[in-house]
Design a protein around this nucleic acid. Structure first.
Length: 141
DNA sequence: GCCAACGTTGGC
DNA sequence: GCCAACGTTGGC
């Protein structure tokens, strides 16, 4: 079971939207690096949901209910015969008791190499177990 | 295949 | 609203 961080602009689709809907197809990822990470997501993996824009914080968690598959809205395969545009299905987890902000993460030297810090635009990234543990504790997830 | 121009993301 | 960082596109 692996951990990931998924970014979303809450005015487009928020953690609250996911809780309201009860499930969702996590779609719209087009960046090549982000897609590599998305394609590696397996059923049961946990996604930390991060809100960009005004909030800039991890606000909740979600669980992968269907591993990466070809985006039905954007069909096609890449040259490795993988889905060119992948999506996963999610169900909501808990809301963070204490959202952990980007500023807090940046201030913690243990996160110096975390992609959220080093690759500001990456929208899907793995979270190594040691950092996941820290984030789970600090968010209360 | 290089690289300039342009587009997008997301923090500030 | 600006702009840095980065990705993509297209002319050569």
């Amino acid at each position: 079971m692996a951990y990931f961080l998924l970014k979303t602009e809450p005015s487009e689709y928020s953690f609250e939207s996911l809780r309201r809907d009860g499930s969702c197809v996590w779609e719209g990822v087009s960046n090549a690096t982000a897609l590599i990470h998305l394609r590696s997501m397996k059923k049961g993996d946990v996604a930390l949901i991060y809100h960009t824009g005004d909030e800039k914080a991890i606000v909740g968690s979600a669980v992968v209910t269907k591993p990466a598959y070809e985006d039905p809205k954007r069909p096609g395969r890449n040259d490795r015969d993988e889905p060119k545009f992948a999506v996963v299905d999610l169900k909501p987890g808990k809301a963070a008791k204490t959202p952990v902000t980007l500023a807090e993460i940046k201030a913690d030297t243990r996160f110096a190499e975390f992609p959220l810090v080093t690759q500001g635009r990456l929208s899907v990234m793995p979270v190594v177990p040691s950092l996941a543990k820290i984030l789970l504790e600090r968010t209360g997830l």
